[in-house]
Computed example of a mutant assay.
Amino acid sequence: MGLSSALLVAFFHDRRGPVVNGLRVWSIYRLADAAFLIGAMSLHHLSGSGDFSGLAGQGVWPEGRVDIPQQSVLLVGCLFLFAAAGKSALVPFSGWLPRAMEGPTPSSAVFYGALSVHLGAFLLLRISPLLDRSPVLSGLVVLLGAVTCVFAAMAARVQSDIKSSLAFASLIQVSIIVVEIGLGFRYLPLVHIIGHACLRTLQLVRAPSLLKDYNSMINALGGVAERRSALEQSRYQRMYRFAMNRGNLDSILDEFVVRPFTAALLWSDRLERRWTNWLSGENK
Rank of each mutant, 00 (worst) to 15 (best):
F256R: 14
R273W: 15
A225H: 10
K284W: 07
L202Y: 02
S165W: 00
A225V: 05
L204I: 14
I176V: 10
R200L: 12
L211Q: 09
W267H: 09
G281Q: 13
V142H: 01
A167R: 00
A167N: 05
F168I: 08
E272C: 10
G222L: 14
L202K: 09
L221C: 09
G223D: 11
M244A: 01
N215W: 14
E180N: 02
A167K: 02
C149P: 01
Q159N: 08
L171K: 00
M239I: 09
R238E: 11
N219H: 10
I218V: 15
D254H: 12
E255T: 15
T262L: 09
L202I: 06
N219W: 05
N248F: 15
R228N: 11
T262I: 06
S234V: 13
V258D: 06
F261T: 08
C149H: 08
R206D: 06
L253R: 02
N283T: 15
G182E: 03
L143G: 04
E272K: 07
G223H: 08
V224Y: 05
F261E: 04
S234I: 14
L265Q: 12
S280K: 10
D213Q: 14
R227Q: 13
G223S: 12
A153M: 10
L183S: 01
L231A: 15
R238W: 12
N283W: 15
L271C: 10
T276M: 09
L202E: 05
L253I: 05
F185C: 00
I181V: 10
S164W: 02
A169T: 06
S175L: 02
D161R: 05
R246N: 10
L231K: 08
A263C: 14
L166W: 01
F168R: 02
P260V: 09
A197K: 07
A263W: 13
V257N: 04
L143S: 11
V191G: 07
V174I: 15
A169C: 12
Y214M: 13
I181F: 00
L171P: 01
S170Q: 15
V258S: 05
I193S: 01
V258A: 09
V258N: 05
E272T: 14
S229V: 04
